[in-house]
């Protein structure tokens, strides 16, 4: 019989191999994701994530259930699959979930670090400003992708189970890929706008109001220019809320029914790229000049 021994090394020097920058980025992504979703934080930090999850997934699951139980719910008329991303009467609630995420949850990713001074600590690690921003973008885009793509793929699955999905594996995969790409366009656009605006303030409430004003205000101004003042429909590319959805619809070879349908594919594409570049441009410009210590 050998004697048992409690062996507590305590704090000691480390002579193993250190993990690389990818590990650092992964840690920031996970920490940011938890922070945004309120995981391990007080109840009030969980309010918006829970509301958004309910808006995005509860109706989706109900629709999925109805489709699964009753089969053909649209008298043999197959849906336009891009509608699963939100731009439709049936699934319009999804747009509200995306919008609420960009306004109420995404700003937390970077505002909290500057408010707490964590940026200074991160910058004293192997992270650079750019790897830090990549980590933050991945965290925001990753969680937003769940909100945008989760319901879309669930609906595609529901309709496919009931034989109302695309015909054949090839078509199905094509629709799946288009949904994925369309969803990513929406995610990247909202993510860029939200992070860009949030980088300008250390107060989350201010950031949320500013994102709301830009997304909603931009949409209202563009709509007013075109519909009330009867200016060229090209001005709808300045609508940050609607442009990414219009872009997703174009991926399916369709256009929306309103005035946005008259805008050329090129203009829509330029509009979306413009919003993405503007958002991330502000973000990068702000952090390039940010004094951390």
């Amino acid at each position: 019989m050998t004697a048992a021994e409690i062996f507590d090394q305590g704090y000691r020097r480390f002579d193993g191999e250190r993990a690389g920058i990818v590990s650092s980025v992964r840690s920031v992504v996970w920490y940011t994701t938890k922070s945004m979703l309120g995981i391990g934080r007080k109840g009030r930090h969980k309010v918006f994530p829970v509301i958004i999850a309910m808006i995005a997934f509860l109706p989706t699951v109900i629709i999925f259930g109805i489709v699964a139980l009753f089969g053909d719910v649209s008298n043999g008329i197959r849906p336009d699959y891009y509608e699963f991303l939100g731009p439709s009467e049936s699934f319009g609630f999804l747009i509200f979930a995306h919008f609420l995420y960009a306004v109420a949850v995404a700003p937390e990713a970077i505002v909290r670090d500057r408010r707490d001074g964590m940026v200074a600590l991160y910058m004293s690690t192997p992270l650079t400003r750019w790897t830090y921003l990549i980590a933050k973008t991945v965290a925001v885009a990753g969680t937003m992708a769940i909100v945008v793509l989760g319901p879309a793929l669930l609906l595609l699955l529901g309709y496919t189970i009931q034989g109302q999905g695309p015909d054949g594996f090839g078509d199905w995969f094509l629709v799946f890929a288009k949904l994925l790409l369309g969803g990513l366009i929406i995610v990247i656009t909202y993510c860029g706008v939200s992070l860009g605006i949030s980088s300008l303030t250390d107060r989350r409430a201010f950031a949320s109001v500013a994102v709301l004003l830009v997304l909603l205000g931009g949409s209202i101004v563009a709509g007013t220019l075109v519909e009330e003042l009867e200016m060229s429909s090209k001005y709808l590319v300045f609508d940050p809320l609607g442009s990414p959805f219009e872009s997703a619809i174009r991926l399916f070879g369709d256009t929306s029914n309103g005035p946005a349908g008259a805008v050329s594919d090129l203009s829509v594409t330029v509009g979306v790229i413009g919003w993405i570049l503007a958002g991330f441009g502000v973000l990068v410009g702000r952090y390039r000049k940010l004094s951390v210590i």
Partner: peptide, 26 residues
């Protein structure tokens, strides 16, 4: 750092572990 840079609602263990990871610890 000199500034009070600690996230208020995070346990000390999680905070230290996170920064150790970011600094390259497996």
């Amino acid at each position: 750092p000199e500034r009070n840079v600690l996230p208020e609602d995070m346990p000390a263990f999680d905070f230290v572990k996170h920064l150790a990871e970011v600094r390259g610890m497996p």
